[in-house]
């Protein structure tokens, strides 16, 4: 076999190829994260979708995790255990959210008239005051009031409203009943 010696240019070309390979791995490795895709360089450079937080989207997550088991994913309620509907419900679509916030904070039990039909059960709905933050409660209530899936459309509930109601009812431990709630004005002062 021949004893040909390759010129320097050949080795420079090899070096360039090797450099390209290493540079590719060095500069475009996305920090080896499973969440970084082309064209982004790292996790921080990926824009958040939609920019700011959308309360309906945030609330949808809370609803799916905590509420949908009884109220159903489509908000229809469950006649089998007396759980009333939230989609199109007159309680939910009330202009002021004061009663709604109280129900989520402390829960509710006993008979309740929703859209002219009696619902409710002796066990009732659980309290979420310890499980959820003001913000999360505001999100989930806003979601059920504005859900595009259910065509609900009522004003947004803010974390400040929830905070004010929470402070007012902080001494209360028991679930609400329909009669008690009916005495409270709907607007949050």
């Amino acid at each position: 076999m021949g004893s040909y010696t390759a010129p320097v240019g050949f080795f420079i070309a090899l070096a360039i190829l090797a450099y390209l390979g290493h540079a590719e791995l060095g500069y475009h490795n996305g920090q080896f994260s499973p969440g970084v895709y082309e064209p982004y360089a790292d996790l921080r450079s990926i824009p958040k979708s939609g920019g700011e937080v959308n309360p309906v989207d945030e609330g949808r997550v809370v609803y799916a995790q905590l509420c949908s088991a009884c109220h159903q994913p489509n908000g229809s309620g469950n006649p089998a255990n007396g759980c009333p509907p939230v989609a199109g419900s007159d309680w939910v679509l009330e202009e002021g959210p004061a009663r709604l916030i109280r129900i989520v904070l402390n829960g509710a039990k006993g008979p309740i008239m929703v859209n002219g039909k009696e619902w409710g059960s002796p066990v009732g709905m659980l309290a979420f005051k310890d499980a959820l933050s003001d913000e999360q409660i505001a999100h989930v209530i806003t979601y059920i009031r504005q859900s595009p899936e259910w065509k609900n459309n009522a004003p947004t509930v803010t974390a400040e409203m929830v905070k004010s109601v929470r402070e007012k009812t902080s001494s209360r431990g028991a679930q609400w009943t329909s009669d008690e709630l009916m005495k409270i004005p709907t607007a949050v002062e």
């Binding site: 499973p34 989207d57 949808r60 997550v61 609803y63 799916a64």
Partner: peptide
């Protein structure tokens, strides 16, 4: 090892 067992993710947009 990294992505072979990726779970489904919850979408805030669709609620599923």
């Amino acid at each position: 090892l990294q992505i072979g067992n990726a779970p489904t993710v919850f979408s805030k947009e669709t609620g599923q």
